[in-house]
């Protein structure tokens, strides 16, 4: 179970709506599956050129290179590394811990895509070395614009299992 304050839940939905049709992304921090703080992180895909993208990940590029940067940000996200590092530092300073990463799906359901699962597993392979707790993955679906759906998942062994969100 993930305990999520209503104010943060609303702020995440507002963040998703603000960036729609691009995907939004961010970090949730707290203690023992109780969220206390939210960090909005810039999705840099809209501002990355194809060449820049190619410098990191050929696999990702093959899916995305047909698209303009703007279109790319509609179907994927890449967190700004500097903002992510700043958030991690703030989380430590406040004696909180990473609880979840969140992002939006602007036209698909609130469940992790194959790419989401692959990248979550990649993150898992570094996580313990960086001494970070296992994060949940929260997805905000704007498929039905008037009724956003927010769901949380634990991703282990390439399988996503839903974790109940309880509002506080």
């Amino acid at each position: 179970m993930l305990l999520l304050p209503s104010a943060i839940l609303h702020n995440m939905i507002e963040h998703a709506r603000l960036l729609d049709p691009h995907e939004c992304c961010g970090i949730l921090a707290g203690v023992n599956r109780e969220v206390r703080k939210q960090y909005r992180i810039t999705n840099i895909l809209a501002s990355l050129t194809t060449t820049e993208l190619a410098r990191f990940d050929q696999a990702k590029l093959s899916d995305l290179k047909q698209l303009s940067p703007e279109e790319r940000a509609d179907i994927a996200f890449q967190m700004d590394a500097q903002e992510m590092a700043l958030a991690q530092k703030d989380i430590r300073t406040q004696s909180l811990q990473l609880q979840a990463f969140y992002h939006s799906h602007t036209a698909s359901p609130a469940r992790p895509s194959t790419t989401d699962i692959t990248i979550a597993m990649e993150f898992e392979s570094y996580r313990e070395k960086l001494n970070l707790p296992e994060p949940l993955h929260v997805i905000i679906s704007l498929m039905e614009k008037d009724t956003p759906i927010v769901r949380a998942y634990q991703i282990r062994n390439s399988t996503a299992t839903e974790v109940e969100i309880t509002r506080s």
Partner: peptide
């Protein structure tokens, strides 16, 4: 366990036994 952006960037000193991790920022696709 520290990001070099909070140390001294590329000038961050390294010594015997240090471990460096190069990590892509978290991402996803639809």
């Amino acid at each position: 366990e520290e990001d070099i952006r909070f140390l001294t960037g590329k000038d961050t000193p390294l010594k015997e036994g240090d471990e460096v991790s190069i990590i892509p920022a978290i991402a996803g696709g639809a």
